[in-house]
Design a protein around this nucleic acid. Structure first.
Lengths: 136, 136
DNA sequence: TCTGGTGTACTAGTATCATAGTGCACTCGA
DNA sequence: TCGAGTGCACTATGATACTAGTACACCAGA
């Protein structure tokens, strides 16, 4: 063991291509600190088996991440998370802002104003047991 | 300006199929109350011209909405928003919950807890001049 | 009846996504 | 040297999305 490494959760019913979902999951793992610079990703073949997808799909995802400077690959050795401390550091905040803006845009498209949005978020976080507020 | 009717905003760079984006936009318009039961949608040809897409793509979107009971079509007359007051009434809340849950899921995947999420939402709504919420 | 607008159906082609399978170059360790 | 594991390249197939173009059926109004 110790070889668990990383396994993306994929949604095969989504309209988003699988190879992009893999990229997204790796990006989240990096943002979360779960994958750190220098860490080795599973081999293309291994990940293909774990995620139940074709090796070619994983290959495409890895190629994409290489182009995005998320990873660095060494032929014959493997694929590693890029050494980009600054980039990594801002990644989490950037992705959060992205999610936030998308959420706000959708809510406003539905005609909700700021106070309503705030109330709904608050309600969801309270009722959902969010924020570590263990509520009796 | 009675002929303006309805024009969806489409993102041609998205991985989401255009015909589904059209469906989404109509659903939002209904949820917002902008399109009400009985209202007539633009003809397939007109919408195709307005949205700069192929008539067949619009046709597919309209077929999809028909299957989802969002609309009712009369051959030779046009396509109309379905007469489903109950369905319509809950639509807005449902879509809001959907957006909210998706947002929270993404934020938690990034490792944010409830209080952090709340703070970010609050900050965005305040700094953004959001919702006409005069703070105080 | 004719005309124009409507929804609908059909064929065809292109591009993308995912799968399937094969082969090759490289690195490492025995 | 050899073998195992790695990334990488290539061809082929099928499904889906989108485009392109055409044709037909229905309805309303002149």
């Amino acid at each position: 063991m110790g070889g668990r490494g990383f396994t993306p959760r994929l949604d095969f019913t989504s309209t988003r291509p699988i190879y992009l979902q893999i990229v997204d999951e790796v990006r989240r793992a990096i943002a979360r600190g779960e994958l750190r610079p220098g860490d080795r990703l599973p081999s293309q073949r291994d990940l293909a088996v774990q995620a139940r997808v074709n090796p070619n799909t994983v290959q495409r995802a890895y190629r994409e991440m290489e182009l995005l400077n998320m990873t660095e690959t060494v032929r014959g050795e493997g694929t590693f998370v890029a050494q980009n401390p600054v980039l990594i550091r801002s990644l989490r905040a950037e992705m959060a802002q992205e999610a936030l803006q998308q959420f706000l845009q959708e809510m406003r498209a539905l005609g909700f104003d700021g106070s309503e949005i705030r109330a709904l978020v608050d309600q969801a976080l309270t009722g959902d047991g969010g924020g570590g507020a263990s509520r009796g």
